[in-house]
Design a protein around this nucleic acid. Structure first.
Lengths: 201, 201
DNA sequence: GATTTGCACGAACGTTCGTACGTTTCTGTA
DNA sequence: TACAGAAACGTACGAACGTTCGTGCAAATC
């Protein structure tokens, strides 16, 4: 191939066949974990769905916990790619919050995620399971809440921490309620409530 | 009270030693399932915690699914006993909704449930697992939402279905957020938001 | 051409799961 | 006191779990 000078392993360098396989595994793992849970996510089943051997898949992670942590990381990356980055150009404050909520609700409504919101499931599953996996989930959710609060402050809203909580509760509630009742009216309720939160801005 | 079915699904512990054992099993099962999930709830561990044999416990239910269904039923009974019945004497409408929300949030805040809200965990776990267990969970949540909507209507609030959803999202969001962040401020946020929902009444 | 390295494989391990079945122990009447 | 039925127990099973280990093979490196 090319005569490009090869650098030592850089952070996040995605080269080689192994990295591609690993990425494919994690893509599927996020979907599977959204349905079966992070604990119900089984190495054997994941391998079967990807048509590879259990041991071959396992060797990419070394332990189930490492697979779970990597899956949480992949889910965070996917969340940023679908809810954060697409609205990065929208002006700070109320417009940005509106766009973020819409990006989240829109993906739920379209059924883009077969298993619903990964974070809703992971949060409920690990809230009582201390350890690195729980910490990773909590950190991701905290950073999301912080972003909501930051934007609420930029919007000039009073009590941005309270507004952030309410927005979080509304969109997660829409996810939870839609998932179990399949009642699509919850999306209208949630959009309406988000709008009411943002009205003072 | 009507005719008793052949299946061991009677509610009252009126007869026999077996019924008392069964009730004790289910009491523990609800707590365990709130922490480990309904799927993570294992017969062996449940038996060990109750200091009885796996087979002795198993014979009360005949299958794990029957144990899960019975656990859902016991959790519904506990929910009614802690959130519905204690406020039965409170006047319909806004006062009743306030009292119900306070009963729910108060129990969460006091840490009465070691594993947090059973329904938040069960709903997230089973939203993608079709079958009798999911149906039982969905039915219990629907009846709760319906009660909220009924009380919202009695309170003279507009769009009682929307109000019911928002109240549901707020209290469940408080549970979810408190469980993962241990931030007690969410209770104040939730109470404040409930009050704002009820203000027009 | 020889050697090292990176990926994936199949077989087997020890454990735990839900479930089945036969036996023992308790308990409430006749 | 005897005894039937209920309740709890002990043992065993097949399957699936996470994990370990040795091997095969292609690409990269020497």
């Amino acid at each position: 191939m090319g005569a490009v000078a090869k650098t030592p392993v850089a952070v996040g360098a995605e080269q080689g066949k192994g990295a591609a396989t690993r990425a494919a595994i994690l893509e599927r793992a996020v979907d599977l974990a959204s349905v079966e849970g992070l604990e119900g996510l089984t190495i054997g089943r994941l391998a079967a769905e990807l048509q590879m051997s259990k041991s071959g898949l396992f060797s990419h992670f070394g332990s189930k916990q490492e697979l779970q942590l990597a899956t949480v990381g992949a889910a965070a990356q996917r969340f940023r790619a679908t809810v954060i980055e697409p609205v990065a150009a929208v002006p700070d404050g109320a417009p940005r919050l509106r766009a973020m909520a819409e990006a989240y609700l829109g993906h739920l409504e379209d059924g883009a995620y077969s298993g619903g919101c990964f974070w809703g499931a992971a949060s409920a599953e690990y809230d009582d399971r201390p350890g690195p996996v729980r910490n990773a989930i909590a950190a991701a959710l905290d950073s999301w809440l912080n972003e909501l609060e930051r934007q609420a402050a930029l919007a000039g809203l009073e009590e941005p921490d309270r507004v952030a909580f309410e927005l979080y509760a509304l969109v997660m509630g829409a996810n939870a309620r839609y998932r179990i009742s399949r009642d699509r009216r919850v999306f209208a309720y949630a959009r309406d409530a988000v709008e009411r939160q943002l009205a003072p801005a």
